[in-house]
Design a binder for these strands. Structure first.
Lengths: 220, 220
DNA sequence: CCTAAGAAGATACTGCCACTATCCAGTACT
DNA sequence: AGTACTGGATAGTGGCAGTATCTTCTTAGG
């Protein structure tokens, strides 16, 4: 199909399709002449995936490129899962050094909290992991706000996070040996967060409503 | 204190403090003359909160303003929690109408899924809630990707989301009658998502590592 | 008192991002 | 031959989050 039909099929403007091509999110079509190329179903599917990752997953174009690169280089299930896991952006990143409060004590205290949590959960994650660093940064900021995020509190959340991660991996790995493995895995790993957030917000709204109207039929 | 000291104390550039003032994230200082104002500890604390909401919570300036407005108008605990819950941005928003695929069937199918899930969970949430609409949009997109997000699958996640929401509300409401109620509540409600996401990613990394090295000491 | 160093507020500018539009050869159909 | 369309390159747009400049005013030090 030509680019105009690809655009019609997916709802993505032609100019945007060209943009995604430039940014290497979308492979080129099969060229049939100097100014003509043929696109296929794989392009339709890829555009849908791009849309899902950016609009639902909230990924930037750059992050989407990295994730899709991991999908395209799929070798084994494990390697694919690992590549995707590392390609996904970390929600919280440490600020560049030299930040106003050069509080080394707070930094190491937060680091100790995270290390303790990981030990308590028996997680295999090195302290060099961007996720480790992100959590450390977050805890440092929360300490500054006098927020109640002590390790004891965190463990309850960590247990739930662990359950979620198990559900995710179970689903992501279930596509083992299927041709669509990498693609389905990326959907699960990249969109699980936003989906969970939506469910959490829904549950939160329910809790708030029950507090506001405790005399309802289901107030128990 | 003067603005330069406020800047030094918080690490926020003077120009940014002025910007937050303009955007109504930060109250004005107590004016002592036409071109002089006095700032206090509440400004320091507010700036820390702004930083946490934007950098950790990922909120935009506009969303932060809404959330802070809810904090400032705190009346009762319940009203505060409700106001904050509604002020927080919904991660997934329905695209403007007229989108390429005018698939009314997919839309209502997704809507039925969400309604079914909410009924199964016994949640008190109207179908007009932005969270309901967001989840519907997300499911519609996922259906298009042939992702395995059937209601049965979702329930497991919903149960976990429910547990998380209960932990959150328990903590948010624990500050009842404390002067810092609204502020601590907003921290819990707005930053719980990013914190959980970080923990989930950490747990995910652990799972991926265990798959990659199943002969480790804790591979069970 | 005079002056230099801020301070406050208004306005303008910047950099990044995700598109979006224009331009240019080069087909393809009629 | 004429028109519509194509792929690719390049340039422009709009929103966001600051950042910088400018003007007027205040105040502490000499």
């Amino acid at each position: 199909m030509k680019i105009s039909e690809l655009s019609r099929r997916t709802g993505v403007p032609v100019a945007s399709i060209k943009y995604f091509r430039r940014e290497d999110l979308l492979p080129a079509g099969r060229a049939t002449a100097a100014t003509l190329a043929e696109y296929g179903e794989e392009h339709v599917q890829r555009l849908r995936l791009i849309k899902a990752l950016t609009t639902l997953g909230g990924l930037s174009i750059a992050a989407t490129r990295d994730v899709l690169a991991a999908v395209d280089q799929a070798e084994s299930t494990d390697k694919t899962l690992e590549a995707i896991s590392y390609a996904l952006p970390v929600p919280v990143t440490a600020a560049s050094a030299g930040d106003a409060d050069r509080d080394a004590a707070a930094e190491s205290a937060a680091e100790a909290d995270v290390a303790g949590l990981i030990a308590a959960m028996d997680w295999q994650v090195p302290s060099t992991s961007p996720h480790f660093r992100g959590l450390t940064t977050a805890l440092r900021e929360l300490r500054r706000l006098d927020a109640d995020y002590r390790p004891e509190r965190l463990v309850a959340y960590a247990e739930l996070a662990h359950s979620i991660a198990r559900l995710d991996l179970e689903r992501a790995a279930a596509f083992d040996d299927s041709p669509a493995l990498a693609e389905q895995a990326v959907i699960v790993l990249a969109l699980s967060g936003p989906m969970l957030e939506l469910l959490r917000r829904l549950a939160q709204e329910d809790q708030v409503r029950r507090r506001a109207a405790p005399d309802g039929p289901d107030a128990g």
